[in-house]
């Protein structure tokens, strides 16, 4: 099964470069290139890609708002992977809160790029777990950050599900969680699915943000 990718960036060199690099992978296909946020939103509706590589800074409509529009539907299938020149940036965090599934530095290597697309498409693990965790921990603790709208309530989770949620937030993949709890990976998948449904979250990145923002996980070391 090939992963269908849409690239949204206002710089033609970046679009073409990523297209060449991703098309070189047998299991990834770039299906379109958008020049700005509005274009990206329109092309997602039209092409239904699995993953959108989204630049944050674009004219007309920025990447964060475009991400919000793309992932806003309840039935939105496309996952957004945010491209950034600067990591650990509050705008990257904004993008995650807006619904992005992960972020990637623009100067990532071809392997990192392909890996990121696959991980985000599969949704079994956080992308760059340590970095993502640090980003979320750093910005979730900032005073004045509005809490995530309480879509579902953490009280609705069972004890086991709460435990799984905190492990997700710590950046563990399904396989790692299964090994840690000594259960089958399929069981973990079921738990994760239930957590996302109960809390109305779209993926584990959002679950991690949720866990930090609702205080289930207390950032340490910052």
């Amino acid at each position: 099964m090939t992963v269908r990718v849409l690239i949204a960036d206002d710089q033609v060199m970046v679009r073409q470069g990523f297209t060449v690099l991703l098309n070189a992978e047998p299991d990834i296909e770039v299906v379109g290139q958008a020049v700005d946020g509005l274009d990206a939103v329109a092309m997602v509706d039209e092409l239904v890609p699995d993953v959108v590589l989204m630049d944050i800074r674009m004219p007309r409509l920025g990447g964060i708002e475009a991400t919000r529009r793309i992932t806003g539907h309840a039935d939105a299938a496309a996952k957004v992977l945010v491209l950034t020149t600067f990591d650990l940036d509050e705008y990257v965090y904004e993008a995650l809160r807006a619904g992005a599934s992960g972020f990637l530095l623009k100067d990532a290597s071809a392997e990192e790029l392909a890996h990121a697309v696959r991980v985000v498409a599969a949704g079994d693990a956080l992308l760059a777990p340590n970095l993502t965790k640090r980003l979320i921990a750093e910005y979730a603790r900032l005073a004045g950050t509005p809490r995530m709208p309480a879509k579902g309530r953490i009280g609705d989770l069972t004890e086991r599900e709460t435990e799984v949620l905190s492990l997700i937030a710590q950046g563990l993949s399904n396989a790692e969680i299964a090994a840690g709890l000594v259960v089958a990976e399929q069981t973990v998948k079921t738990h994760v699915g239930r957590i996302l449904v109960k809390l109305s979250l779209r993926d584990r990145t959002q679950a991690a943000v949720y866990a930090y923002e609702c205080g289930l996980i207390r950032p340490t070391g910052y």
Binding site: Q11, V14, V20, T85, D107, A110
Partner: peptide
């Protein structure tokens, strides 16, 4: 920085 990241992408793309 933005120009630098484009350079890094292009340098990767060129062999392809």
């Amino acid at each position: 920085a933005h120009h630098m990241s484009v350079i890094s992408i292009q340098a990767q793309v060129a062999p392809h």
